[in-house]
């Protein structure tokens, strides 16, 4: 930044914000966001783990968190989400999520423009935040990065005959999840081509068992793609970790197959039409027969 400022003062640069070629060559990764609202919401949804693994390449930006071997969540942002996106090769580094969150909320929720800069291994991740209304203020945060092993890779077989995919409107699914008894321990999710098409049972509540079914013809279901019945149980504490992502999602995709591994995609509302989504993998509880 110093560099461009000097050039600006010398009159070589007309726009202080403009990056020069020399700066690009100094940094491995430079990106600019005009609005950090969506990005902040995405980061907040991943706050259940301490460290976030960043993976940046030409396809976009990924931040992954894990808890145990039970749940994994990733925030994906396409290069199109950024007003400026430059990356040299593939970058891996870890950042403390709480620190990142604190930096992002340094202006107490006022929407800012942000520039991310990263020079390479062992260099800090630099965030430059400027509130949109006030050009006078800007803050520069430098977050230490570490290098750690890459996160586990989960995947569902896209060609499996038992792969079931449902698209649901976010706010409606959020309502359903909110009605579950807080004391419930396990959730059983059934997806079936016949009635009940999509059913969630709550288990482990004293003196009461409840279930909720949604017919596939319901307006909240945007797509229902199911050939075989799948049924699996999940720890409700894990499912509840998706709550923050769910509360900001406009659309949710639920994918699962006979293995029971559940993949959820939360599409975040973004004005720029570019795709920002959070992906969750939740492992099922072992069958007890």
């Amino acid at each position: 930044m110093q560099h461009s400022k000097l050039l600006y003062e010398k009159g070589i640069l007309h726009n202080k914000k403009m990056l020069t070629q020399s700066q690009y060559s100094n940094f491995k990764f430079v990106a600019r966001l005009d609005q950090i609202k969506t990005f902040t919401a995405g980061i907040k949804a991943l706050l259940f783990a301490e460290h976030g693994a960043f993976m940046i390449n030409e396809d976009g930006f990924t931040c992954t968190v894990e808890q145990g071997k039970c749940i994994q969540a990733s925030l994906f942002m396409m290069p199109a989400c950024f007003s400026e996106f430059y990356v040299d090769g593939v970058l891996h580094f870890n950042v403390n999520m709480n620190v990142l969150n604190e930096c992002l909320s340094i202006f107490a929720g006022i929407d800012c423009t942000m520039k991310m800069l990263y020079k390479g291994p062992e260099a800090p991740l630099i965030l430059v935040l400027e509130p949109q209304d006030e050009c006078e203020i800007s803050t520069e945060c430098s977050i230490k990065t570490t290098v750690q092993e890459e996160p586990m890779e989960y995947s569902l077989d896209d060609n499996s005959s038992s792969l079931n995919v449902i698209f649901i409107r976010g706010p409606d699914l959020s309502n359903i999840f909110q009605e579950f008894d807080k004391s419930t321990e396990e959730l059983e999710i059934t997806i079936s081509p016949r009635r009940p098409h999509f059913k969630i049972d709550t288990l482990g509540v004293m003196q009461s068992e409840s279930s909720i079914e949604v017919a596939k013809s319901s307006d909240m279901i945007l797509m229902f793609n199911c050939r075989e019945t799948t049924k699996a149980r999940y720890k409700s504490s894990l499912v509840r970790m998706t709550q923050k992502a769910l509360s900001v999602a406009s659309k949710v995709a639920i994918k699962t197959d006979l293995s029971g591994l559940m993949e959820m995609h939360f599409m975040l509302q973004d004005d720029s039409q570019a795709e920002v989504y959070i992906q969750f993998f939740i492992t099922p509880l072992a069958e007890m027969d």
């Binding site: 009461s208 068992e209 409840s210 279930s211 909720i212 079914e213 017919a215 319901s218 909240m220």
Partner: peptide
């Protein structure tokens, strides 16, 4: 609404 069915079984004490 939205073709949702909620079903609850409560134990009789």
């Amino acid at each position: 609404r939205l073709e949702t069915i909620k079903n609850v079984l409560i134990s009789i004490v």
